[in-house]
Amino acid sequence: MTFDYIVQQLINGISIGSIYALIALGYTMVYGIIKLINFAHGDVFFVGAYTGYFTAKAGLGLILSLIIAMAVCALLGVIIERLAYRPLRNAARIVILITAIGVSFLLENLGIVTLGAQAQGFPDIVNKSTYTLWGDVTIDSIQLIVLVVTVVLMAVLQYVVHRTKIGKAMRAVSFDMEAARLMGINVDTTISATFAIGSALAGAAGVVFAIMYPSVDPLMGVIPGLKAFVAAVLGGIGIIPGALVGGLLLGVVETGVQSIPGMSLWRDGVAFAILILILIFKPTGLFGKNVREKV
């Protein structure tokens, strides 16, 4: 096992990890504000990917496809929140969770009915070039794009949440919804904005994912959605930098396990085992704050 080999595997791990991080950002955003594990997130991701598929087929380039997919998903996210989650704002968390599962099934199966269950190839819209760093170590342009997009979006998100007015409103709603309302914050608008941003991120992730792994199908969001969820929890769900760290960590661990001969079967097992260990020793994730329970 040479140094080059380890570096190459590290690059592989970071590249898959940044995809997980990108999806996890949306998860964590929504969770941070209304404490909902939005299981439909992975399916908004699939809608984003399909939107990108159609725009790319129509001949639009990467940037336009991304923008359209993000817009479509933002709208979808707002609609989902308005119709399915808002009526349940004061219900038990598990009820909203089941509703989220219901929305997830609904999107997947509407997808199967309208688009068919077969995977379709995603058109080439990015000229992929591979750069050799040294020796056998290579990195390609898409891997770089994904990493850059993820870091930039995370920074933007961090800025929005901590430096803007809507971000302040989001944090207020997250802290205490009732108090925020009393302070004159429009809670509904704030939550809608959160869903719009979170879902737009899922849309962007969907397009980028489909470019990197060029196929789309209605069930494509299930596994990445689950992995991103794990990544978000690893990092500390609700904490934006945590999503990035959790995603990268998960990606590197998965790749690390697979890079050992004969271990490729245990990739997910090891990933889940590490998740459980981290949760046991640090129950709110790596970046999570330990909230003291009030009596």
Partner: peptide, 22 residues
């Protein structure tokens, strides 16, 4: 020379392929 596995719905195979390449 090697037997490796993936799972249905996997998308990223680079880790194992990097090893197969060696």
């Amino acid at each position: 020379v090697a037997e490796e596995s993936y799972q249905t719905k996997d998308t990223d195979f680079k880790a194992v392929l990097t090893r197969i390449k060696t």
